[in-house]
Structure formats: structure tokens, C-alpha cells
Amino acid sequence: MTSIITLEKVSHSFGNELVLSNVDLEIEQGKIYGLLGPSGSGKTTLVKTIIGALTPNSGKIYVENTKMPSLKKLNDIGYMAQADALYEELTAKENLDFFAKIYGMDRLNRKKRIDQVLNEVDLFESKEKVVENFSGGMKRRLSLAIALLHEPRILILDEPTVGIDPVLRNKVWDQFNEMKRKGITIIVTTHVMDEAEKCDQLGLLRDGRVLASGSPTELKDQTHTRTIEDAFLYYGGVNS
């Protein structure tokens, strides 16, 4: 398999605090890659370096052989931030329309895609509602819709299912698998262990270091544990 995203010795610190320490990562095309770790482990910083919103102090990042940060490459990447970055005064549709224009989509395509993604995240009925009046879950779904809007080949989702009810969460994961079949690479960060099981590949992150990576089965087999949680504890114990 060819890797679509490569991180080489990426380190970054905020002031004196080391947030990422020598991270090497290979993410394969068409897989769902999960970054698993507690809060403060550096997940968000890591994905920010991948999209180029943050240039690390040292190390190199390549997305499809393009060195990041690269504005042009962002056309191929869909991103959903951990905080819902939405314009509260605008309606769901107006938010989508704005981002569609920023991604340079033409009028016809815009209209078609906006309706599509609204249906995909179950928000079609609320499209004329002002986001201010949305529930937390609805905002999360709208953020996801914005990430999907420009049909990116790579999706980077920072805690995408927080605040979404279990039924919809299953639906969202079905969508991820559907997108995977279309050849889209998905990177999700999560701190929920059962979600980690659904990923093809996992990177276990703690204190800015990758403790281990591999498929969930591999990780469990290597550590002779039955759950990802136990595997995480095992690696954490070995390395600390």
C-alpha cells in the first residue's frame, strides 16, 4: 500500500511545553486512520500540522508528496475542527454556501453539494435555521457537512462524534465506511475506545509521542490483551 500522508520526525512545542515529540507516521490511502489518545496528548496539534494550519518547529510533513503547509493541497483536504467553527448568525445553508465559495466551487455544483451533504448529516429540514438555535449535536453535524462539502480525497476529523447521539454516530460511521469504499482517506482523532475499534489503523498517542501503531487486531495481539484500552495501558506502562 502507498502512504498518502507521511510525517517525519515532527516535533513542536508551545513555549517550554513539548507537545509533539519526534512523531513519525505513515497513513495509507483509502483507510480509516484513528489517532487515539487522552486529551492533552497532542492529537489536535498533530492534525493541525497535517493541514498546515500549524508549522512544527522541526520535522517534515507530506500529503500526497506535497510538502505541507501548502495552500493548494488544502483543496484536497476536508477538515473538521474540534470546536464547532460556525457563523452563529447565519443559517446552516448560508454557512455551507460561504465555505463552498471559499473552496471555489461553482454555482451549480454548490447548490447540488449543499443539498447532498445536508441530507448526509440529517440536517436538510433545518437548513434555513440560524445556527445560534442549533443543539450541540446539530452544530457538530453541520461542521462535518462543511468538511465533506468540496469532496476532498482526504478527510481530517478532530473528534467528529462528540455530542452526537449513538444512532446518528452509527450512521456517521457508516458514512465513513462508505467514503472509504470510494477511496477517501479518513483520519479521525478520538478518545473513545470503542470508536477506535472501528478504525483500520490506529496510532496511540500520549504526551506527544506515538506509543504504537497498527491495526486494532495487531495491537491487541502484540500485547496479548483483549481490548484496545488494555493495549493502550500496556504500551503506556512499557514506555513510561
Partner: peptide, 14 residues
């Protein structure tokens, strides 16, 4: 503060 600036940084806008 609402994070949309950072969100814009993840788009190909200059």
C-alpha cells in the same frame, strides 16, 4: 474566538 478564523486557515484562502 469562535474558531472560524482557524477553520479558514484550513481552506485554500490567502
Amino acid at each position: 474566538s469562535q474558531g472560524t478564523m482557524e477553520r479558514l486557515f484550513a481552506t485554500p484562502i490567502r
